[in-house]
Design a binder for these strands. Structure first.
Length: 276
DNA sequence: AGTGTATCCTGCAGGC
DNA sequence: TGCCTGCAGGATACAC
């Protein structure tokens, strides 16, 4: 569910609450969210101070006072909510893990489908894992030239390439569809088949749609919520995702939906021709 | 090596 | 009303 803009929104909100707070107590309601025992997980976090919160791709990273790190991946339906003490909000459904913080407040991880996970890393172990992720699409390192060069190494359909977190980190099915539409590139096209002009348009499209979605605090189709429980406002700005049968905003042709790699792809057959 | 597919899990919408 | 099917923003183990 949550792609880069959604995760960025959550991180920005939590940055106003978490740093400076201590993890006082941990309640694990759903142990299958972890890859270690609930006891080890709790022991590794208890009494650590949260120093910082950042994002890498679609992952949320909490830096702790002992140099270790807690990674939160929200999967499809994960939420990370901050609740002040005495909050009148109703208790969340599908609570997975509750972190009681000091001085005051709690951090709640909820997840209907439980595709998400929480992982502790040492500084060194995270460094190694981090290198396996592709560059940040909004980062300065990823130039048009590097993007184009990277595309040339793959025969995969460009939609699959964009979803592969080892290529570029943070893009999911919604923003892949939107970026391809903005660039006029059919999702089926081979990555290495894009010429310089097309790859430049694609990177520009990716950056534009991600920035606009961050500005709108992400896209709530159903389950995504910000850290304060709010909804993202980018939904009405989606031009093709979820709009099969509707008119293309550019040319009025009917938007099509095809399924490959087990996922829907939405595109305009006129603005995004499969063959040039 | 580099791809596509099936699978984990729950909830909801739509058809009958 | 209720049962059934298909579909969902992600990541990964496997087969080819």
């Amino acid at each position: 569910m949550p792609e880069l803009p959604e995760v960025e929104t959550i991180v920005r909100q939590l940055a106003g609450h978490l740093p400076g707070r201590r993890v006082q107590d941990i309640e694990v309601c759903r142990a299958d969210l972890l890859r270690e025992s609930a006891e080890d997980f709790s022991r590794g976090l208890q009494n650590r101070d949260i120093v910082a919160i950042t994002r890498r791709g679609k992952n949320i990273l909490l830096s702790l006072s002992d140099q270790s790190l807690l990674l939160v991946n929200l999967g499809m339906t994960g939420r990370l909510l901050f609740r002040a003490d005495g909050s009148t909000d109703p208790p969340p459904t599908h609570l997975g893990i509750r972190f009681q913080l000091c001085p005051g407040g709690s951090l709640l991880y909820t997840d209907i489908r439980r595709f998400g996970h929480l992982l502790r890393y040492s500084k060194a172990a995270w460094g190694k894992e981090n290198r396996r992720l592709g560059p940040e699409p909004l980062g300065r390192w990823l130039t048009h030239h590097r993007f184009h060069t990277s595309l040339q190494t793959s025969r995969a359909p460009i939609r699959s390439w964009l979803l592969d977190q080892k290529r570029v980190a943070g893009i999911g099915n919604i923003y892949a569809a939107e970026a391809l539409f903005r660039a006029g590139v059919h999702p089926f096209r081979k990555a290495r088949g894009l010429n310089r002009e097309e790859s430049k348009a694609l990177l520009k499209g990716i950056r534009k749609v991600l920035r606009e979605a961050i500005w709108a605090q992400g896209t709530t189709l159903r389950d995504y919520r910000t850290a304060s429980g709010g909804r993202g406002g980018f939904g009405p700005s989606l031009q093709v995702y979820g709009r099969a049968g509707e008119e293309c905003p550019t040319c009025k042709a009917a938007i099509e939906r095809i399924v490959f790699a087990n996922r829907s792809a939405f595109f305009c057959p006129h603005c995004q021709p499969e063959v040039l």
